[in-house]
Amino acid sequence: MEFLDRYQQIVADAITKYTFKDKPTELYDPMNYIISHGGKRLRPIMVLMACDLFGGDLKEAIKPALAIEFFHNFTLIHDDIMDEAPLRRNKPTIHTLHGINVGILSGDGLMLKAYKFFEDLEPEVFKACVRIFTHTGLLLCEGQQYDINFETQTDVTFDDYIRMITYKTGVLSASSFEIGALIAKANFKDAKAIFNFGKHIGIAFQIMDDYLDVFGDQAQFGKKHAGDIYENKKTVLYLMAREHATEEERKELDYWYSKKTDNIDKVYNVEKIFRRTKVDEKALRLIEKHNEIGQSYLKKIAIPEDKKKPFAELANYLLRRES
Rank of each mutant, 00 (worst) to 15 (best):
E2Q: 13
F3S: 08
F3R: 05
L4V: 02
R6Q: 14
R6M: 07
Y7V: 09
V11M: 04
A14I: 00
Y18F: 09
K21V: 06
K23L: 14
L27D: 02
I34D: 08
H37R: 07
G39C: 12
G39F: 15
R41H: 03
L42G: 04
D52S: 13
D52K: 11
F54R: 00
K59M: 05
I62N: 07
I62K: 10
A65N: 09
A67E: 03
F70H: 07
N73M: 13
T75C: 04
T75M: 12
L76N: 11
D80T: 01
K91D: 09
T93V: 01
T96K: 15
H98C: 04
G99V: 01
G103K: 07
L110V: 08
Y115K: 07
F117S: 06
F118D: 15
E122R: 12
E122T: 03
E124N: 15
L139V: 04
Q144T: 05
T152L: 11
T152R: 15
T154G: 06
D155E: 14
V156C: 08
D160I: 03
T166A: 13
Y167Q: 10
Y167I: 08
V171F: 14
N187A: 11
K189S: 11
D190Q: 03
I194F: 09
I194W: 09
N196I: 04
F197R: 04
K199D: 07
G202C: 15
I203H: 03
I203C: 03
I207D: 08
D213Q: 10
D213I: 05
G216F: 12
G216R: 12
Q218V: 15
A219S: 12
Q220G: 07
E231R: 15
M240K: 10
R242K: 10
E247A: 10
E249A: 06
K251D: 07
L253Y: 10
Y257Q: 02
K260D: 10
D262H: 10
D265W: 05
E271P: 00
F274P: 01
R276A: 11
E281M: 09
K289A: 02
H290N: 13
N291H: 11
G294A: 04
Q295S: 08
S296Q: 12
I303T: 11
P304T: 13
E305L: 11
P310R: 05
F311Y: 09
A312H: 07
A315D: 08
L318F: 06
L318S: 01
